[in-house]
Amino acid sequence: MSSKKIKAQMRVFQELENQLLIQADKLGVKDDYNPIKIKEMEYDALKNHLLSFYSERSNIEYEMQVLGTDKKEVLIKLEKLEIYIKRAERLLDMYKKYFGKVFKTQNEEKEKIEKFLTKSRISVSVGEN
């Protein structure tokens, strides 16, 4: 697929997401769907797809080994499945990196705030006079 088509499709996904987020906003639950939460949903969906690919692969392998099927169609299917699994695993790694990066920046910001709060602590001494 050309990069133009991919971009167009991504825009469609973005538009659908935006529309649903507007609806969530009207319902007053937009905070439940922040960008990280949406990425988490994508990550979960990706994992589910990967699991179904794994099970499909094991089914095909079982069919080939036990039933002795070695048809060209099955081999092509298995090959395609391998490609999809590799891509899914690569995407999963990318998501993990993304989450790592997000959590790292969040921790850094948290540390900065804590540092600022400890620095700007005001001490008051109360004398007898």
Partner: peptide
Amino acid sequence: LAQVASEKALFGIVTGAKI
């Protein structure tokens, strides 16, 4: 939203696009 996320993930797998 779950459906869109699922389709996006599948699109990424099938086309190899960075989603």
